[in-house]
Structures are given as structure tokens and as C-alpha cells.
Design a protein around this nucleic acid. Sequence first.
DNA 1: AAAATAGTGTCTATAAGACATTATGTC
DNA 2: GACATAATGTCTTATAGACACTATTTT
Lengths: 233, 233
Amino acid sequence: MVGAMNNEPARPPKAELQASADVVLLTIEDDRLKVVLVERTKEPDKGSLALPGGFMWAGEDAVTTARRVLAAKAGVTGDVYMEQLYTFSEPGRDSRGHILSVSYMALVRREDLVFAEGPLTETPALYPAVGHPKLSFDHDRILKYGLKRMRDKLLYTNIAYALLPMHFTLTQLQRVYEIVLGRDLDKRNFRKKYLSLDMIRPVEAAMRGGRHRPAQMYEFVYAKPVELAEPAL
Amino acid sequence: MVGAMNNEPARPPKAELQASADVVLLTIEDDRLKVVLVERTKEPDKGSLALPGGFMWAGEDAVTTARRVLAAKAGVTGDVYMEQLYTFSEPGRDSRGHILSVSYMALVRREDLVFAEGPLTETPALYPAVGHPKLSFDHDRILKYGLKRMRDKLLYTNIAYALLPMHFTLTQLQRVYEIVLGRDLDKRNFRKKYLSLDMIRPVEAAMRGGRHRPAQMYEFVYAKPVELAEPAL
DNA sequence: AAAATAGTGTCTATAAGACATTATGTC
DNA sequence: GACATAATGTCTTATAGACACTATTTT
């Protein structure tokens, strides 16, 4: 009806914006849940800590950006568990301009995490996920979101596999749950429950070492994300 | 050098892209769960059905875009329940270019849904959410995602409030659950369970009408999203 | 044999699910 | 009083959670 103007009155500008991916990369080290943070070497907020992140490149989707960032900043290359968390898009969230951030949570085994030695512009390191230092931008909020997601998913999926070696003992599995959930679990109840889920199976191997009885080792039946019919704990 | 080449040079181009918000707007009509779809009047995919959506404007965040789209295309202006679903960012998802889509699920009471009479270029209408027609772009995927989210959240939150009038009967509440979950529920078990959650309280009113016993009416204690400690069903 | 961790079973309490009848309005 | 929906309770089964001792290996 109105010629060139179709939908909107006096059509305002479509936003030409940039998008970034920011990753909450979690691992377990020294019986604690830790997160990879990088020290910013550029303004804004030079010198402070932030989640590893980077701009989306042309032709990339957000998860590709996230994987590239993990490889570049945390030396993580193998296939990592990664899931999208949330997209933050408030115009004021980054002082450099309107930058939309697609956030991800990633899980990695500590031994697969090798911080690159090369000429990195930003140095990555591990920090306690609970009681972490203050972060730049709105990254505190993103990290908080990632931690909640992690705890929730532990209870109704098998994602613990992403933090354990291929073969592990029930005690190690229980420790993952205790560390992430932040509370002690009863050994007998944990084993009874977990074994009833049919998510893990025993393997022909025992964990030896230490002056004590060796432990039966297990492996996950599915080494990929699976939702449980019933809650895991 | 604002090149489109992606040769992995020292510094590839940051993507300058556009972002849109697409909304899975659900309601209940005639005892069925329905979704608002619009008929496309422009290429690409002119004439086919799609979720209501629109481009983010400069200075807007994605949820503002989503609300603007709801008002413009579905006449929905009151405060609507809305939550972010997922962000789709594959370069090939829209033939017009690299358009990132932040998707939302929204819930509205049928009586609050007034399709605008004005010179709309796209006509919105209600379609069955289960057994809906084929949609444009990747909107089938987004709708599927929205339906799953809706069913999941019904089980551990109070979002049913967003589909019911302020005062309602337990039978009406049960119908919402049955319609969304797609299965019949036992009346006695449903009431016992739901009342034990302390999410609703009786009000001084009865639903009259029809030649039968009037029903006690209830209201939600919190008319906003609340997560339940225990599952709702 | 001492040390250290692995491995196991019972009891109780709570929740889930199957199931049918009585109650109270309107017409 | 006929109709239509509202409202209610019991029993069975499954799950969650509290709780302590024996088994096996190494040194």
C-alpha cells in the first residue's frame, strides 16, 4: 500500500552488529571445579580477567567461533563437550559497541587442556569456578549461568563423561558429582542409583595403586550426551 | 580491504551480520495448543508460512525486538511470558545472507491475542502446534525446540499461569497440562499433587454455568515464573 | 598385621500411580 | 429428579535417604 515502506512506519535502521562467542570452559583440577579465564591485554578493561571469547568471522557460525576460541586460547582441540547457554544482546553490555554474545559451556578433561606456549596475546589460566575473581563486561553473569547449567545437567544427563577418562572408578564418578554439586553424597546410595540407570558398564580392568584394594573400572555406555528418563540423583 | 575472502590470513574479517528475533508464540484455543504463524508476502519463500520474526534494530536488544514483533504481528501488547530458546547462526540458514536468529518462546492467553486489523503485510493466524504445516527457513526446527521447552517447563515451573485467566478452576488447570503434554491425567492424582505444591490458592469465588455443581476457583500465588523444588507431575 | 580404599544391604519414609463413589449445583 | 461436573481417599508399588560393616589389596 505505502510503496517502498512495507512493514514499519519510517523504517528504522536494521542493526549492523558484531557477534562474539564467549565460553565457560570448565574442568576439574585438584578436586575442585575450575574455569579457564584469560587476562585481557587490550582495552577496554586491560589487565582484568574475562572468559575466553572472540568475534565471529564471516562465514562462521557461533559454535565454530567457540571451538576456534578454545583452540586458540586454551589449546583445546579434541572434541569437547559444548552446548549453547544463552545469548546476551543488550546494546550496553560491551563498551566497544553493540556486540551480541552467544555464550557456551564447555567441559574438558584436565589432561586435554594444554595452554599454548606460543605468542599468545592473552594468557589463559585456571581459576576456581566457585569464588572466582571479578570478571570484565558481563562475564560474571555468563559464568554464573554456566555453573547453573552444569549442575542442572549433571542431574538429568550423562555429561559427567566429559570430565572423566574413558575408564574410571565409581569413586571417581562420585567425586565429580560431589565437586560440581558442592555437597557430599552417600557412597551406597550413589552406587545403587547410578548403576540402576544403565549408563555405565564395568570393563575388564581394575584400578591399582596405593596400598589398598583395587577398584573395578567402568565406562560410559554412550560417550555422548544422553538425557536420562529419571533424575540421576 | 573489507574483503569477503576467508583465506585465514593474519586477521580474517569479523563478520558484520544482521540479527533477527523469531518467536514461537503459543496459546490454547478450542482445547488445542496452537502457534501463531504468518504468511510471507515477500521473497524469499513468498506465500509460505513462518514464525513471526523481524530484524533487530540499532540500539535494541533481542528481547525488545521480539516484543516489538509480537505487538506488530500479533497485536500482543500486555506483558507476555517470554523466554529465550536458542540462537541459530549457521551462515546458510537464510538465503538473504548471514542472519543470526535469536529465538523465543512466548505464551499468551487466547483472549489477549488480537490480530491487528490494520494494513498488515503479513497475516498472522493460529495453527495447531502439533501437526503444523511446513515452515520456511529453519523455522520447523525452532518450533520443535519451542514445543519441547514448553513441555519441559510445565513440569518444573508454574508457567501454566501464562495460559490461564487470573481465576481458574482445577479442571481448567488440568486441561492445560493435558493439552500441552498430550496425554490424559488422573483427576484425583493431579489435584493432590498440584495442591501440595503451594503454587495456587483458592479464591472467594465459584465458577458457575451449566447445569452442574459450581467449581472452586483458584489463583496462582506468584503470577510470574517460579521454579519448583519438586517436579510438578 | 596394619593401612587404605572397595564394596555391599536393610529399613523407613515419602511419592507416584491405579482406581470409584459421593456431592452439589442447574434446569 | 435428572443431569453434569466437582470433589474426595485408599491401597500398592517404587524411590530416596539414613545408616555401618566386611573385603581385598599393598606394604
